[in-house]
């Protein structure tokens, strides 16, 4: 019975709601200038109300997971996705729903005509409903954000493993950033593939840009070196910093059988020597 009244009030004053809400949204969007025009905001408000109205009329105000709210939920998900991509913050995105609270409360206050008990009931119902919708918006915002982060991470992974040719038969792999299992796997695969493609006999892995080496990272490096040896190529690890050398010894990691050099120049010199290439100064 009470729900019908909310729905009635909503139906009766819909034009007012839309006008006031749009005005509020536009004034609150001062900080968002340039990212979203007022016409866009108005359009979004209108679209939302178009979907919100039938959903309210369905009298299912307690549960927004039902089929009545499907379209509203889809709209909010789409809205948060677009806002993530446009660079909005989470509170700016959530404000879209929460700013509707004030408008609806004012309207309900007008419509309840002094019946305090009914007004309180309506306020509570509307409050719960809008909170749920707001949380849903934030949740979708977060999910989209995570998708973006995952994608970037993936792109970073592919970008961060360039295999460069230093000389005929000598490849170098400058590693930058923290090494984890997933990255080492990609690094190992791309290096081995490149070895096959270029028929290179020596690979230099430069770890100057690796901030820390722990047992796991050392393990990964040893695995890569062993795989390279199995394929018939030699591996030199260069760019071992003093702290890293200390850590490796303190951790008791066995690097026997792995050639290590302090810097890339030394490693290249060794690689050239092994390939039988010598330089003379003019």
């Amino acid at each position: 019975m009470k729900n019908t009244t909310i729905s009635d009030a909503f139906g009766k004053r819909r034009a007012d709601i839309q006008a006031i809400w749009t005005k509020q949204l536009t004034s609150a969007a001062g900080s968002a200038k340039g990212r979203l025009s007022s016409t866009e905001l108005e359009q979004q408000a209108r679209q939302f109300l178009e979907l919100f109205h039938p959903a309210v009329q369905s009298n299912q105000l307690d549960d927004i997971n039902g089929s009545e709210w499907l379209e509203v939920r889809a709209f909010l998900e789409d809205l948060s996705r677009r806002r993530v991509l446009a660079g909005f913050s989470s509170d700016e995105t959530a404000l879209f729903i929460f700013s509707l609270k004030r408008v609806l409360f004012d309207i309900l206050k007008d419509e309840s005509a002094g019946d305090a008990m009914q007004m309180a009931d309506h306020f509570w119902q509307m409050n719960v409903l809008l909170d749920k919708l707001g949380l849903h918006t934030v949740k979708s915002y977060q999910r989209t954000r995570e998708e973006v982060i995952n994608r970037q991470q993936h792109e970073l992974l592919e970008l961060s493993t360039p295999v460069v040719k230093l000389w005929d038969g000598i490849l170098a792999l400058p590693m930058i950033g923290t090494l984890d299992s997933a990255r080492t796997q990609v690094v190992m695969e791309s290096l081995l593939q490149k070895i096959v493609e270029t028929e290179s006999q020596i690979a230099i892995i430069d770890i100057t840009g690796v901030p820390t080496v722990d047992t796991l990272v050392a393990q990964h490096l040893i695995k890569t070196v062993t795989a390279l040896r199995l394929m018939g190529a030699d591996c030199i690890i260069s760019g071992v910093r003093p702290q890293i050398a200390q850590t490796i010894v303190h951790l008791g990691v066995d690097l026997h059988g792995v050639t290590t050099k302090a810097n890339l120049a030394d490693a290249l010199a060794l690689a050239l020597k092994r390939s039988g290439i010598a330089f003379t100064k003019k």
Binding site: L192, I195, V196, K223, T226, A227, L228, L230, M231, G232
Partner: peptide, 13 residues
């Protein structure tokens, strides 16, 4: 032993 493929090398390791 010659011509080991990358995937084979990784598996063996």
């Amino acid at each position: 032993l010659v011509g080991m493929q990358p995937a084979v090398a990784i598996t063996l390791v």
